[in-house]
Nucleic acid binder design. Structure first.
Length: 599
RNA sequence: GGGGGUGUAGCUCAAUUGGUUAGAGCGCUGCCCUGUCACGGCAGAGGUUACGGGUUCGAGCCCCGCCACUCCCGCCA
């Protein structure tokens, strides 16, 4: 046996016992005639002492030659540290182990970067951390993330088990249904020219499981999407996926609120209040300019369409005449914004199709703005009243179609908040979590370029019952039974009540989404058929597990909570994937390359 | 596909804005040191300034290209 205790276990009660510790050399303090080795395992660390008066010369010399991060086993007697030498910084700081034996289990080379110094190692270039991920993961901050991830996964499973859910594994080798995200394809050896696809989500299988009578399904499901990545998006990621039969939206809200309550209690020992607030898609856009609002600070958008309908300022009145709106935002205290910051905001606005970004700086009791000369007293009064304008404020305007105007100011609102945070004028406690449900999404959105409707969520989402007649007459007014759960401006998950009537599903596919009937049959025929043989009403949701863990760990990147993440370009710097393959492998798969092999 | 940022010793960073031999801390190597815990002291090694071109008397610094990492837009039913 290599150890009797772990490295965060020894206390004064163990004094006098002969113990064996195994772990990594955390630090070595060689005083010449006396050597201290801190030995570390995943639980903590303990000081061991090598005193030549009690030891063979050979062992003492072996100790003096030890390098950081070598793996060793030390045997010796636990004892009280001499008076005045306790180390209050570590839990084992009252005791030490007088070494009588030392075994070097693995001699470590000099490390490419330090893992024992949190100050330095947290700043190490991420490229290097990913290349030597096994060293990076030894850092206590990373180890803590993965311990938390594991605890939350377990709490999730326990919760769903208590709620009567079955965990069912669905296939990783699925079929291509190129409706949503780009898929990863897997060539079939047995069926030349045919491919599997990795699932973007287990959506179709979980609905089929409802037809199968499972009633309550969940899974910590691996999902794959071949899209460009972000700090919160990886090619492969994990969802808490669930589906229930014989339920309505309220049942999902209830269930998910219970889950998140349990998770936050488990991870952070926090009691989050439920039920969560609810806000409609329309209200979210009107007030926050985004469908996943961060409600931890104000600076809400206000509407001035009526006030400027007859304005002499043609940019505003003209936009309104075109069916658009005028919206404004008070970036409180940002009048001191630099020209560069205004420039950045303007560029930002332009990237959303805005022609410019009108603004008013309120400084020294004066409205400084290129456009204020066009405003009459009534318009100025309305602005002051609705926006609560005070000295030092920066007012920003968007005049455009409703959705565009809202989204522009939504982005500007978040940008302004970041600037204010940087100036110390806005601070949000790190333990504040504003959860809310966003509901009443439009079922369909219109793609101008392709001149057709597409599903806002996915094509299996049920319309709100009273809106069904509008499908034929005014599709854009139809609300879907879709819901997103949002925390602090981040989308944590989304789902819907599904269509469980094959004729409604067929109408959505063929008449609204304009997918040709034979394509519908080829891609979704088995689902439509399944729905004909007794399909219960059902619905579900999927929560981004990696994102949730990142939020709980307080890190902006999900790479910090995924053991072996990929880079932004989709490579694994440690294992060095992807790679070319042998010609024989390609021949077996009936694949011929059109690119030269890189050497 | 597009835009921004970064790249200098093993690691983290500097280099007076184009000027002589590219520095510091940590780490590493050697020597000294019996109560340290960021141990201490002395000495030393370590550089294709990511890479390839160009401008210049002279380039880490300017220009062009390229690679990698990263953030964002597009994309993510």
């Amino acid at each position: 046996m290599k150890r009797t205790h772990h490295c965060n276990e020894l206390r004064p009660a163990h004094i006098g016992q002969v113990v064996a510790l195994s772990g990594w050399v955390h630090s070595r303090r060689d005083l010449g005639g006396l050597i201290f080795i801190d030995i570390r395992d995943r639980e903590g660390r303990t000081q061991t002492v090598f005193d030549p008066s009690d030891l063979s010369k050979e062992i003492f010399e072996r100790a003096s030659g030890l390098r950081s991060e070598s793996v060793i086993s030390v045997t010796g007697k636990a004892r009280q540290r001499p008076a005045g030498t306790n180390n209050p910084k570590i839990a084992t700081g009252e005791v030490e182990v007088m070494a009588t034996a030392l075994e070097v289990l693995n001699q470590a080379d000099v490390l490419p970067f330090p893992v024992d110094d949190p100050e330095v190692s947290s700043k190490v270039n991420e490229e290097l951390r990913l290349q030597y991920r096994y060293l990076d993961l030894r850092r206590p901050e990373m180890a803590r993330n993965f311990r938390l991830r594991s605890k939350v996964a377990t709490a999730t499973r326990v919760y769903f088990d208590e709620q009567g859910f079955l965990e069912v594994e669905t296939p990783i080798l699925f079929k291509s249904t190129p409706e949503g995200a780009r898929e990863f394809l897997v060539p079939s050896r047995v069926h030349p020219g045919s491919f599997y696809a990795l699932p973007q989500s287990p959506q179709q299988f979980k609905q089929i499981l409802m037809v199968a009578g499972v009633e309550r399904y969940f899974q910590l499901a691996k999902c794959f999407r071949d899209e460009d990545q972000r700090a919160d998006r990886q090619l492969e990621f994990t969802q808490i996926d669930l589906e229930m039969s014989f339920i309505e939206r309220e049942d999902i809200y209830n269930l998910v609120e219970g889950l998140l309550k349990r998770v936050w209690k488990t991870a952070l020992n926090m009691d989050i209040p439920t039920p969560f607030k609810r806000i409609s898609f329309e209200e979210a856009l009107n007030r926050y300019g985004i469908d996943k609002p961060d409600t931890r600070f104000g600076m809400e958008l206000a509407d001035f369409t009526e006030e400027f309908r007859a304005s002499t300022f043609k940019v505003f009145s003209g936009a309104i005449a075109n069916g658009g709106v005028v919206k404004a935002l008070n970036a409180k205290g940002l009048a001191g914004a630099t020209q560069g910051q205004i420039e950045t905001m303007t560029e930002y606005a332009k990237s959303f199709g805005a022609k410019g970004l009108a603004y008013i700086k309120v400084e020294n009791g004066e409205w400084k703005s290129p456009i204020v000369k066009f405003f009459n007293d009534g318009e100025k009064g309305a602005l002051t009243k609705k926006l609560g304008i005070e000295e030092g404020d920066l007012i920003l305007f968007a005049a455009d179609q409703w959705l565009t105007a809202c989204e522009i100011l939504g982005k500007i609102r978040l940008y302004s908040a970041d600037v204010l945070k940087g100036q110390g004028k806005l601070s949000i406690p790190s333990d504040r979590f504003d959860f809310l449900w966003v509901v009443d999404f439009p079922l369909l959105s219109f793609d101008k370029e392709q001149n057709r409707w597409y599903s806002s969520h996915h094509p299996f989402t049920a319309p709100v019952a009273e809106d069904i007649p509008l499908l034929a007459t005014d599709p854009k007014k139809v609300r879907g039974q879709h819901y997103d759960v949002v925390v602090n401006g981040m989308e944590l998950g989304g789902g819907s009540i599904r269509i469980h009537q094959p004729d409604v599903q067929k109408t959505i596919f063929e008449q609204l989404l304009q997918i040709p009937p034979d394509t519908v049959k080829a891609r979704f025929g088995y689902m439509l058929e399944a729905f004909r043989y007794g399909c219960p009403p059902h619905g579900g949701i999927a929560l981004g597990f990696d994102r949730m863990i990142a939020i709980l760990c307080g890190t902006p990147s999900i790479r910090d909570v995924i053991a072996f993440p990929k880079t932004a370009k989709g490579t694994d710097l440690m294992a060095e994937s992807p790679t070319p393959v042998e010609p024989k492998q390609l021949r077996d798969l009936h694949i011929e390359l059109k690119v030269g092999r890189k050497e």
